[in-house]
């Protein structure tokens, strides 16, 4: 009777606890025998363990190959453009795919501006929705909101863009513009903010709310001054990660915000420059060295921008987290 065989002892789906009901009682055989079997695991078990270990290491390195390859390609092919001052000061006016030169400042500014406007709309709605879900909501409305946030987080960016197109252009007859694209990005950013803020608010101990209530502090003051204040760094991190996510979104720009090679700070009229659209601009001519270099340079700029936001977010999360 070899009761200690892996498969019988620990069925795959059993959530292991100290006294798993499926483990056979050891009483009907000598303790010595059991000990011997344990200290010398069944060979199959040891081999399985070894295979798993090797598989994990191999998976890791196999998975890292394309990812490292991508980063390396972008950096090595894009860096030289970024080292020239013009890249950070100029735009692409009158520069064709086959031309070298020009800068990306117009697109950097455009991307930042659009992200800023998006955040201005999405952040208050997102945070207040999270506040409702954690601090006020119960019952049907809260469940409905939570469900809708889930749905919204699954809406593909192209569908969000089509929706804004259907409202903005088809229904109201307005022109495509940077602001229309920002509205589509708002739809994509809200669920990110709601979910991350919700997580952070749930982490705030209930005791702090009670302490404030017991001091005769009204609920809304408690939420604003105690709960949101305590969760502040986490919320900021969530906002920055959400921003990083929407800055690289291209589909809404493709549908709603045609690219321009010039400086443009008007979100409501005319074409609008952004980094993803600057990459897209040269797509058809990627065989030209000048166009490919510009695409890599722009991609690297975009990655650096996203990376910068990520790092700031993590630094805030690290140093701003409440020490116990």
């Amino acid at each position: 009777m070899s009761a200690l065989k892996t498969d019988q002892r620990v069925p795959e789906d059993e959530n292991m606890t100290g006294d798993s009901p499926t483990s056979p009682p050891p009483s009907n055989r000598s303790g010595n025998e059991a000990l011997r079997e344990m200290s010398n695991p069944h060979r199959g078990r040891a081999i399985k363990d070894l295979i798993a270990r090797i598989a994990m290491w191999v998976s890791f390195f196999v998975a890292m190959v394309p990812l490292a390859w991508i980063l390396w390609t972008v950096v090595s092919k894009g860096i030289h453009l970024l080292l020239s001052a013009t890249w950070w000061t100029g735009n692409q006016r009158n520069i064709n795919s086959s031309d070298v030169g020009g800068g990306a400042r117009h697109a950097i500014e455009g991307t930042l501006m659009m992200a800023g406007v998006t955040a201005l709309i999405a952040v208050p709605i997102g945070i207040l929705t999270a506040v409702y879900l954690v601090e006020y909501g119960r019952g049907g409305l809260a469940r409905a909101i939570s469900f809708m946030v889930d749905i919204l987080s699954g809406v593909p960016s192209i569908v969000a863009a089509l929706f804004i197109y259907a409202v903005w252009v088809t229904t109201f007859g307005l022109d495509r513009s940077g602001f229309a694209a920002a509205l589509a990005l708002v739809l994509l950013m809200i669920p990110v903010i709601v979910r991350s803020t919700e997580e952070m608010l749930k982490l705030v101990p209930n005791e702090l709310r009670e302490a404030a209530y017991a001091l005769g502090v009204p609920k809304w003051v408690t939420i604003v001054k105690i709960v949101l204040r305590t969760a502040f760094s986490g919320i900021v991190t969530g906002v920055l990660l959400g921003l990083a996510r929407i800055m690289g979104e291209t589909a809404p720009l493709l549908i709603l915000a045609p690219y321009t090679k010039n400086f443009q700070h008007d979100l409501f009229n005319g074409n609008f420059p952004t980094l993803p659209m600057m990459i897209n601009q040269d797509r058809g001519d990627f065989a030209l060295a000048s166009a490919a270099a510009r695409m890599w340079g722009t991609a690297l700029t975009l990655i650096l921008l996203v990376l910068l936001l990520n790092i700031i977010g993590r630094v805030i999360a690290h140093f701003g987290s409440v020490k116990k």
Partner: peptide, 18 residues
């Protein structure tokens, strides 16, 4: 108003961490 008049101290010390 009731809580402003009748204060409370809890089981575990809960100073505001921020």
């Amino acid at each position: 108003m009731v809580r402003r008049t009748i204060g409370m101290v809890f089981q575990r010390p809960n100073p505001f961490p921020t």
